[in-house]
Structure formats: C-alpha cells, structure tokens
Computed example of a mutant assay.
Amino acid sequence: MNNLNDEIIYGKNPVLELLKSGKPVNKILLLADGANVRNQEILSLLQKRNIPYQFVDRQALDRLAQRERHQGMLAYVAAREYAEVEDILALAEKRQEAPFILVLDEIEDPHNLGALLRTVDAVGAHGVIIPKRRSVSLTGTVAKTSAGAVEHVLVARVSNLVQTIKELKKKGCWVSGAEAGGSDAFTADLTGPRVIVIGSEGKGISRLLRENCDELVSLPMRGKVTSLNASVAGSLMLYEVFRQRAYAR
C-alpha cells in the first residue's frame, strides 16, 4: 500500500512523459475501463521498462487523487533509482569483500524497509533485494524512515526472488533464511559470501523461497512473545553477520 504522502503524478500526459524520461517509478494505476490509444502507448512503455501496473476502478483513482484530475491514471514516483543485482555484486567486488546481501520477502510496512536500509548502511552490507510485487517499494515514507540511508544503499527490485537467490548461489553465495525453528544464529557460521533472507511481517518466508535457502537460522528467544518485528529481526541478523565477519579477519 502506498502512502498518500508519497509523490504521485496524475494525468495521461504527465505519466507518459515520466515514463519516457526514464526516471524511477514504483507503480502505475490505470482506470479499468479507460483503454484507448494513449493507454496502449503507456502499457507498451510499462512492459518495456518492466514497471508494475494495476487496473483499478474510478472510485479508487478518485480517492487517491483527491481533487486532482487524474484522467484515468496515476504514477507513484520512486524515491531514488533502483539498482540491478549485478550492481550489488559489483560493489562487493570493488570493495574486495565477500558479498553481503539482504533479501526481503514481501515486506509491506515502509517503516520496516526504511529501518532495515538504515541498518544495511550501518553494517556495510552491499545491498538489498526486494520483489516487484506484493512488497513496499522505495516510497517517500521509506526514504524518510531510513534517515538518508536510501541514498547510500543499493536496492534491486526483481520479478522472481527464488530465481534470484538461485543465481546468487551459483555465484558462490550461501543463503541463510531467518525462520523460527532454525539453528541458533549466534552459533551458526555466517561468514563468507552471505545472503540473509527476512520474511514478511505476517507470513514469514514463503515456502518456495524457504525451500531454496541453504539453511534456516533463528534468533534465540526466552520471553513469552514468539516473534520479532521484521526490521528488528533483520537488524539483529545483519549485525550478527557483521560481528562474525569482523572477528574472522
């Protein structure tokens, strides 16, 4: 769900020019019964740039646009440009470090993503990978919550997380999924080329992604609560990797 405080572009011509400009876009909403020649041009650009889009009814567009004339479409502008997975790996190579990557499986709360970007920057991880659908994107709220980290952390947005981690494994990365019931993260070996997977706030790591992890690790807990907030769990996992890598030098 996008926050109403995030930047939104309304109208056919402004949206078309935005897409032609190559600027980062999170998502496009189109009127379900508004197909015409101009919409076909926009759909072609969306498919070419692989930008998520959704058809919605007029009431939804009216509500989101408030008093603005939306002409049957609006665009959510990304807070910054997305990177490619190859850019994240290239950064690790440039620093002469083993890859250290955070994968987020359908995190929907922008505050969680913003907080995790802040931690990723703090521990010197090389980047974050998120899915294009069913996940919060780089919104204004994420940027604000990250306290500026969004400008320094590479974030790649991919169509298929399972395929992406398979490719990372081929490149020598070891994939550790944070999941209740896994081995103790504080005694597991988290050094070397490392991908940490954090699941969604409500469902955890999806089945296919979990099955493709090399291992499952969990944070030891002694209290009555059985789970941690996604950004807290992710931050603790990132710092444990950071701690082990520092002592392994």
Rank of each mutant, 00 (worst) to 15 (best):
M1V: 10
N2W: 11
L4W: 12
E7C: 12
Y10E: 07
K12L: 10
V15C: 12
E17V: 08
K27T: 09
I28M: 05
L30T: 00
A35C: 08
V37M: 14
Q40D: 14
S44E: 15
L46V: 05
N50F: 11
N50K: 15
P52Y: 06
Y53M: 00
V56E: 09
A60E: 13
L61T: 01
L64K: 11
L64N: 09
L64H: 06
L64G: 10
E68T: 10
R69Q: 14
R69N: 14
A75Q: 03
V77I: 08
V77E: 01
Y82I: 11
E84G: 07
E86A: 14
L89Q: 01
K94I: 07
K94C: 09
R95A: 13
E97W: 09
P99Q: 01
F100M: 09
D109Y: 10
H111M: 12
L116C: 08
V120A: 04
D121R: 12
A122W: 03
G127V: 00
P131I: 11
R133E: 14
R134L: 10
S135D: 03
S135E: 06
S135W: 05
S137L: 15
L138Y: 02
G140W: 02
V142I: 02
T145S: 08
S146V: 02
S146E: 02
A149T: 01
V150H: 09
S159F: 11
L161W: 07
V162F: 08
E167D: 15
L168N: 02
K171M: 05
G172P: 04
V175T: 06
S176T: 07
A178T: 15
A178P: 02
E179H: 14
G181E: 00
S183P: 01
D184W: 08
D184Q: 08
A185W: 12
G192P: 05
P193F: 06
P193S: 15
R194Q: 13
V195H: 00
I196H: 05
G199T: 04
G202P: 03
G204N: 03
G204Q: 01
S206Q: 15
S206T: 15
E211M: 12
D214R: 05
E215H: 13
E215M: 14
S218E: 13
L219M: 12
L219S: 03
M221V: 06
T226E: 15
L228V: 07
V232E: 07
G234T: 05
S235F: 05
L236S: 03
R243Y: 10
Q244P: 02
R245F: 02
A248M: 05
A248S: 15
A248G: 00
